[in-house]
């Protein structure tokens, strides 16, 4: 599938599969938001509503054995990698069926068997971890690569600069993927990143940097595939910047005072789901089919929530044990 991608784009089936994956993430996040509204969940979560094409496009262009490192906004990455939505939801709800038995939650979720090295609650904290995983892969002579997801805000952390520098020096097999959604919490990228694009920073670390439309899942896939190939071939790391937008607040309870409703509406016209649905229509998909996919994803996630809410939480031993290996 992937070998043909660059020359011909996606087949209609492939595009439909991407659309379906993005829908499931959107519906998962909406269902989760609803749980917060109903006060059934503690803490907070960072929804990736609007950024689904980044997760689906990037992960879809990789091998299943490639490793992923994510950040605090990681539900899309988790689901795109194929984690069971039920077990992800169970983790968010602090249930023992969750991937980390409720110890990790949204920002600390890992699935080693699916080569998912974890979401991360420290902005920029995952960047050196992914770089180190790439060091280990090279050390062990393996042909997998690592993809590290982070935001525009994280690109201002020292770890971003330190890690890109070290990855470049060691020609490590790591692809850095910045989801630039225009804001780090309330802080606009324009007032926190001193260059026009995060990808411009690649120059400082002698690696290719590219800015791509993060609302177009096909463009994301194509760019990722090209960069991943290069990284896998041993040519060193690369930096991919995906221009995107979160239609939700930074986390729950964000009144979004730092941006205008007009700006949101403008981006809304380019919602990755709208873009993908239009491509499907252009290729002759029936409206009824698109509606059916939406409905299906909605039902699936409703069932996931119901099942997860009924699952048990851990006991005292589970809370207090397991600190040391």
């Amino acid at each position: 599938m992937l070998a043909r991608l660059r020359a011909e784009g996606l087949t209609s089936d492939q595009l439909a599969a991407c659309f379906r994956r993005m829908l499931r993430i959107r519906e998962f996040e909406e269902a989760l938001g609803d749980l917060f509204t109903r006060n059934l969940l503690g803490g907070t979560s960072h929804f990736c509503i609007g950024q689904e094409a980044c997760a689906v496009g990037v992960v879809g262009a990789l091998r299943e054995t490639d490793w992923l490192v994510s950040n605090h906004r990681g539900h899309g990455h988790l689901l795109a990698r194929g984690l069971d939505p039920y077990r992800v939801m169970a983790e968010l709800l602090g249930r023992t069926d969750g991937y980390c038995g409720g110890r990790g939650g949204s920002q600390h979720m890992c699935a080693m068997d699916l080569h998912f090295l974890g979401t991360n609650g420290i902005t920029g904290g995952g960047i050196p971890i992914g770089t180190g995983a790439a060091w280990a892969l090279r050390y062990q002579g393996r042909d997998e690569i690592v993809v590290v997801f982070f935001g525009d805000g994280a690109s201002n952390q020292g770890t971003f600069h330190e890690s890109l520098n070290m990855a470049a020096l060691g020609k490590l097999p790591v692809l850095f993927v910045c989801e630039n959604n225009g804001y780090g919490m309330s802080n606009p990228a324009a007032s926190s990143v001193a260059v026009p694009h995060v990808a411009d920073r690649a120059v400082a670390y002698s690696m290719p940097g590219q800015t791509v439309d993060g609302m177009d899942v096909v463009a994301v896939m194509q760019a990722t595939q090209a960069m991943a190939e290069r990284v896998r071939a041993g040519e060193g790391p690369a930096l991919l910047e995906l221009m995107t937008y979160r239609f939700c607040g930074h986390s729950k309870n964000d009144p979004r005072v730092y941006r205008t409703r007009e700006e949101e509406a403008t981006w809304g016209e380019r919602d990755c789901l709208t873009v993908a649905a239009q491509s499907l229509r252009d290729r002759g998909a029936a409206e009824a089919e698109i509606t059916r996919l939406r409905e299906e994803a909605h039902q699936e996630m409703a069932a996931v929530v119901e099942r997860a809410l009924a699952a048990p939480t851990g006991d005292r031993d589970h809370a207090l044990g397991g600190v040391y290996a």
Binding site: G125, T131, G132, W135, A136, L137, G158, E162, S163, M166
Partner: peptide
């Protein structure tokens, strides 16, 4: 290969060591 020298980037080379440890080093 076994003695990996680094630039002066303490937080990130410790982070790298953590990531490498996750994969068996």
């Amino acid at each position: 290969r076994r003695i990996q020298e680094t630039p002066i980037s303490e937080n990130s080379f410790v982070g790298m060591a953590v990531g490498a440890a996750m994969l068996g080093l």
